[in-house]
Simulated assay, not measured.
Amino acid sequence: MVVGNLAPTITLQIPLEDIVKATDNFHDDNIIRHGGHGPTYKGRLLRSGNLINIAAQRIDHKNGEGDVKFWTEIWRLLDLKHTNIVSIIGFCDAKDEKIITTTFPEYGSLRLHLNNPKLTWMQRLRICVGVARALSYLHYDEGRGYTVIHGAITSNTILLDKSLEAKLSCFHNSIKQCYEDQVHHCEPISIPGYTDPAIKEIGGVTRKSDIYSFGVVLFEILCGREACTENEANRFLAPLAKCHYENKTLKDIIFPYLWIQMSPQSLLTYSEAAYSCLEKEPEDRANMDYIVAELEKALKLQVRYENLLNVFLMCFLFAVLLFCVHYFFIPIV
């Protein structure tokens, strides 16, 4: 069932044959993500004479919820406009196919880069700030008149463009509600390693459910590993990270390539914010605006630290240069 005026979506309709061509007939090599509601493919779509990069999400509607998920994402993306959220390009609803196309950031999902040693601590902080700002926009933007619970925050639903700017995607499980509502009573999807354990107790999801999932992502970024790892003694990252934080042994699980880059103050601010997202009781978790402020602070501390290092390095090199000039080139009188 579709609710709302369909007129704005008419210009967004894309012929199925165009999407088939763009994704090379949905070739397996073009799959960028497997989701609970169907795979997503990368492709190159011709629009207004230009080839653009797209992500085409092919909704599996055999489970009876496909129509709802399909239209939920379309209308949500039409409403949401933010630098750190993917933009809708169009959709296809033809021949038993339901496909949503959005902009496709060239670097793919954050999950692909968690253990990439070339992704610096500074870059990781900028990604975190971007996602946090997107979530703050979803949760508190007053100009929209309602709040949105994303419902599926993972390192797989966060995409990165060529400038490593974060783009939040996958809104088919998102929930729209009034600001005053505390709990949305529903049967939420369960994503191993990310799902808020308090959901069962309170009987539904809240904005704090997104915050818990985001806290898991923050520790993924810090530790360079996924939230759930098969065949590991410590399969789930969240309880492991909480344990190390409480025991002041976080260094033992930080991604080794990051440790030598970090400002101690930046790490302290970041880890405190990440830990606050994972508090057992939802009411004890910080809200998203606070998390944004703390992550921005962690980024500023890191920028200051690296600037000071650069100044120190330049002074050291200049001193070495003066020594060499004096020792090797000034003749002894």
Rank of each mutant, 00 (worst) to 15 (best):
G4R: 10
L6C: 09
A7L: 13
T9N: 04
T9S: 06
T11E: 14
Q13Y: 07
Q13D: 14
L16F: 03
D18P: 06
D18Y: 02
D29W: 03
I32V: 08
H34Y: 13
G36Q: 10
H37I: 07
H37P: 04
Y41E: 04
K42C: 12
N50R: 14
K69L: 13
F70I: 11
E73K: 09
R76N: 15
L78I: 15
H82I: 09
N84L: 03
G90C: 13
F91H: 11
F91T: 15
C92H: 06
E97F: 01
I100F: 00
H113A: 09
N116R: 10
N116E: 12
P117R: 05
L119Q: 03
L119T: 09
L119W: 01
T120Q: 00
W121V: 06
R124A: 03
A132F: 01
A134M: 01
H139T: 09
G143T: 11
Y146W: 06
T147Y: 03
V148R: 01
T154C: 02
L159N: 01
L160G: 03
S163V: 06
S163T: 09
A166K: 04
K167L: 06
C170T: 11
F171H: 04
H172G: 07
I175G: 01
Q177V: 10
Q177S: 12
Y179G: 08
E180D: 12
D181L: 15
I189A: 08
I191F: 04
P192E: 03
G193V: 11
D196Q: 07
I199D: 01
I199Q: 02
I202A: 01
G204P: 03
V205F: 02
S209D: 02
S213W: 00
I221C: 08
E226R: 12
N231V: 07
E232K: 14
R235L: 12
P239V: 08
A241I: 09
N247T: 13
K248V: 11
T249P: 07
L250M: 13
L250T: 05
F255S: 09
Y257S: 15
S263R: 00
P264A: 04
S266E: 07
E272F: 09
C277V: 08
E281W: 04
E281L: 10
P282D: 01
P282M: 02
P282Q: 02
E283I: 14
L295I: 07
E296L: 10
K297E: 14
K297N: 14
A298S: 08
V303M: 05
R304D: 07
N307D: 14
N310E: 15
V311K: 06
L313Q: 15
M314V: 15
F323E: 05
V325S: 11
F329Y: 15
P331A: 02
